[in-house]
Write a protein that binds this DNA or RNA. Structure first.
Lengths: 134, 134
DNA sequence: TATATATATGAGTATATGTTCAGATATGCA
DNA sequence: TGCATATCTGAACATATACTCATATATATA
């Protein structure tokens, strides 16, 4: 059995207990993936503009395309994604599909994120100590 | 003045009033961009895992790398991004930097997103009609 | 049926992004 | 000073992704 000089490997662990605890508390992989997809959906300028617009009123693909200044095709692609994630839903009236937010979650998420970016922040010290393990 | 046969252009607008209203109510471009960056930060598996772990306890780069199974370098890159967006902050203890969440917003965002993905959804009819303009 | 409109879909493409590697910087200690 | 450890940084690269174009589908109407 060969004996390496270094005990240290590429995956150093300084606090083994912390890593173990983190592993135990980790979210299920599928849940993490879903969470990730949801945030990713909100993390795009076009989709964010669409969602913001739909929070105020339902709109059709044409109008959204005009609002954003992109192709109706592009809007349709994005709306499909948002529909898949159940962030929006639609209703048909003739050939026109009106889209709206599926529930209140998007509004809540946007409100909190707005709160975050508008916080004094940038150099401010709004500590708000949270009770973490140390 | 030439007269085109078609009134229709690539940027059709079916409901001019709606588009106009949406334009008036639109978020400032810079704000939208910031919002987008914030959600984008949460919309990545690695960063999401980091944030979830930090919600429970502060951790250093090494440990996070071990937890995620990626390079310390990769973690460092991501932490810089999260720091720039004021989502995390750190404290130094010797050569070790301990990271933690900067405020409660991340927790709130994750909680709401979790609520969304865990909703009966997928075929359910949790209507919750919101009062939109029609 | 035939035509028109609104939307959806698939392929192709240019850009964005997450990771690793190599090397730089910072702190602590002999 | 010199060495070790922890973290950071920049470049390179492979993959993901948002857009457009061409075309297909769906609904309404003549």
């Amino acid at each position: 059995m060969k004996h390496k000089k270094k005990d240290k490997c590429d995956c150093r662990i300084i606090h083994e207990d912390k890593v173990k605890e983190a592993r135990q508390r980790a979210l299920d992989d599928l849940v993490t993936e879903d969470l990730c997809q949801t945030f990713k959906a909100l993390g795009d300028i076009s989709r964010l503009k669409v969602l913001w617009a739909l929070e105020y009123q339902e709109m059709c693909v044409c109008d959204l395309a005009a609002l954003l200044g992109i192709t109706e095709s592009a809007v349709s692609h994005q709306l499909r994604l948002l529909r898949t994630l159940r962030l929006v839903k639609n209703r048909r009236e003739g050939t026109i599909l009106y889209y709206r937010l599926a529930d209140g979650h998007v509004s809540q998420l946007v409100r909190i994120a707005l709160e975050h970016i508008q916080e004094p922040g940038a150099g401010g010290q709004e500590l708000e100590e949270r009770d973490l393990k140390t």
